[in-house]
Design a protein around this nucleic acid. Structure first.
Length: 643
RNA sequence: GGGCCCGUGGCCAAGUUCGGAUAAGGCACCGGACUUCUAAUCCGGAGAACGAGGGUUCAAAUCCCCCCGGGCCCGCCA
């Protein structure tokens, strides 16, 4: 893979060194990076070296820049250098630079820009990992979309990537769902499996809670406790609202649960029993639990499949439990000097591990801050989730050199403690190579989502609404297309809009989900970028011939801007992968669309003045098409040829 | 109480890792452009004490110090 911008920069560096040597013999060129001048008329690359040299040369930056620029001799790629405000600006030779960029893009086509790493690794990306008892919602969507994009970036960089989903299938919540399903007579799902399973889970919870609350309300009434009565009534109202929503979805499911659960003497005990049986790998419990969880996972796969997001592996937490993985980890940890007993529980002294092993310096943590301790085993002897998570990490490193966990930022401390525990066990390299890719949550104005109450805006709802709006837009703008074509375009546009919205915001910032903004199909959105791609395709489709290009003719400022943008794609890609920043790619694609749309309005392609110019502009348009398509593919967004 | 993250025009937001030219963009607002390659577009306008205050520097949104506001975490939950 080649990198035209790097070639231009190397050339400029060489010319700068030569000029500096002539203007100020014996002066070493300071290590400096080139930047892009504020406007295209000033050239393609800009050096601020004069500012750094000002002190040692005892001269004003502007003066130094003048003297250097004067001495720069043109080369095949660089036409001229000019001093402006202390900067030395280099202008590329239009003909040779255009030829270099456009022929490189054309030649490498779908691989252009994807610079390969010299050190390929096996990388595991774990993402989504939502509890298999409620539908995926808009918050999970941010996780899934980020995780999927990271995986795509790493793959294109030449790494071997595996995408995993951890199924949290043990614990009270899942057992509630399994128990509810057994009570219903183990039916097959109706409609959307994840929503159906979510209704069973929330149904069991709501019925149980209502039974409890009503009982406590009666007792409070008997004792005449006014404040308590009001509190219970308020809570009951909340649950009753949830009942209405649940019945709206699956009235028969809720009604059956509401009828059967209260006849059970102690449903909570039954749920605990089922959970224990599952953890003990008892055949009937296993069969039932895996079946219910499987329905929910199928639902996840369907919803995510809509967005072309999938997994290589679903890793079940229960598998870890069954092979006593937590206990093995515990034994290892107990052999270290960092685990102690406190009131019957086993605790790990995370801070001491970090201090003893120099982890705070190593991982850039606050040296003064004491890292909170971590409970490993309850005083009743049962293990906590953390131990299973450690076992899971160790297992992951059997398959990967590097692990990226896409998990909400609220789990920062837990993820740090996990890495510390790995280091404590003598697996420092796992601590080093495991990364918590933290993102902030998605908020919905006016809606408090709650899986327990079955209250959520599901991901599929958002996806379908986006498709519908996109269909309306296509229908208005391109009425001549067939229904199938319109639907296909609507899917590309609707899905793209959602992905772009969630990828373009820095993961560290909270997103307040706004229908209007997410589904805005105008400037600074996926449809805007897709539209520019479709326009490029349309021009190419209408071109009857492709004359030999006269690259030297691409002198219009809009053309120059496009060329430098195209040339910088490989480095944008490289930076985005290194820093794991999908937002760099969304910004790049949007910028390229901006430049192309301006070019489109300002410069005629098919009606170019000469055949040579026509050929050159067609090559430029084709390169935009290719690069825009490559950028969108990294984002998991489809590039339509018309819309 | 402690830790982490965030704070940039009315709203959303890039840039902060690695200090450099007039602080991108978008939404909303105002004014223009479809007999010419698709107007989901383009062109122009107005709008900013970069949370506050100090410091370092030729140069600070960016680095250092202190303070303020918001979110998350500090469970024998996951």
């Amino acid at each position: 893979m080649s990198n035209p911008l790097a070639k231009l920069r190397e050339e400029c560096t060489r010319l700068l060194e030569e000029a500096l040597n002539e203007a100020y013999p014996g002066t070493e060129l300071p290590s400096t990076r080139f930047s892009t001048p504020p406007n295209p008329e000033m050239g393609e690359l800009s050096s601020a070296a004069s500012f750094q040299l000002a002190r040692s040369l005892r001269s004003r930056p502007a003066e130094i820049a003048e003297k250097i620029a004067e001495k720069v001799s043109p080369s095949s790629l660089v036409e001229s250098a000019e001093a402006v405000n202390g900067y030395v600006n280099f202008k590329a030779d239009t003909g040779s630079f255009s030829k270099l960029v456009l022929e490189t893009v054309e030649g490498e086509d779908e691989e252009y820009g994807f610079l390969k790493t010299s050190e390929p690794e096996r990388v595991m990306v774990e993402h989504t990992s939502a509890n298999p008892i409620s539908p995926l919602h808009i918050g999970n969507a941010r996780n899934s979309i980020l995780g999927d994009c990271l995986a795509k970036l790493l793959k294109k960089r030449g790494h071997e990537v595996a995408i995993h989903f951890l199924v949290n299938d043990v614990g009270r919540q899942v057992a509630m769902t399994g128990y509810g399903w057994q009570l219903l007579g183990k039916p097959k799902p109706e409609g959307r499996a994840e929503l159906w399973v979510g209704t069973i889970y929330a149904g069991v919870n709501v019925v149980n809670e209502l039974t409890r609350l009503r009982k406590e309300l009666r007792q409070a009434e008997e004792r005449g406790k006014v404040n308590e009565i009001a509190e219970y009534q308020e809570e009951i109202e909340d649950y009753e609202k949830a009942v209405v929503e649940l019945r709206n979805r699956y009235a028969d499911v809720y009604d059956a649960l509401a009828e059967k659960l209260p006849t059970i003497e102690d449903p909570v005990a039954e749920i605990v029993k089922l959970n224990t049986a599952y953890e003990n790998n008892e055949p009937e419990a296993v069969k039932d639990m895996r079946e219910v969880v499987g329905y929910c996972l199928q639902g996840f796969e369907t919803s995510l499949g809509e967005l072309d997001i999938g997994f290589e592996s679903f890793d079940f937490e229960s598998d870890l439990v069954w092979r006593n993985a937590a206990e093995e980890v515990l034994e290892e940890l107990k052999a270290t000097p960092y685990v102690f007993e406190d009131e019957g529980a086993l605790i790990m002294d995370c801070d001491r591990v970090a201090v003893d092993m120099g982890l705070k310096e190593r991982w850039g943590l606050n040296l003064e801050h004491e890292i909170p301790r971590l409970v490993l085993v309850r005083k009743d002897g049962t293990t906590l989730y953390t131990l299973r998570d450690m076992a899971y990490s160790i297992w992951k490193f059997g398959l990967a050199d590097r692990v990226i966990n896409v998990i909400g930022s609220e789990q920062r401390l837990a993820q740090l403690q996990l890495r510390i525990a790995l280091a404590a066990m003598g697996r420092l390299e796992m601590g080093d190579n495991q990364m918590h890719y933290a993102y902030e949550l998605v908020y919905l104005p006016g809606v408090k989502m709650s899986g327990r109450l079955g209250r959520y805006v599901t991901m599929l709802d958002v996806v379908q609404r986006a498709e519908k709006l996109a269909y309306e837009a296509v229908d208005i703008r391109s009425p001549h297309l067939t229904k199938e074509d319109k639907e296909e375009i609507a899917r590309m546009v609707g899905h793209g809009a959602i992905k772009y919205t969630l990828l373009s915001v820095d993961p560290q910032k909270t997103v307040t989900f706004d229908w209007e903004k997410a589904l805005n199909f105008e400037t600074n959105s996926a449809p805007y970028i897709q539209y520019s791609h479709a326009r490029a395709c349309n021009i190419l489709k209408r071109a009857e011939e492709k004359p030999e290009p006269d690259y030297g003719g691409l002198t219009h400022p809009k053309e120059r801007e496009l060329l430098i943008a195209l040339a910088s794609f490989p480095e944008t890609f490289e930076g985005a992968v290194t820093e794991l920043k999908p937002g760099d790619i969304t910004a790049y694609a949007n910028n390229l669309a901006d430049k192309f749309n301006s070019f489109y309005a300002a410069v005629p392609v098919l009606k170019a003045e000469t055949p040579g110019l026509l050929g050159a502009r067609l090559a430029l348009v084709d390169a935009v098409r290719i690069v825009q398509g490559n950028a969108l593919s990294l984002l998991g967004i489809k590039a339509p040829e018309r819309m």
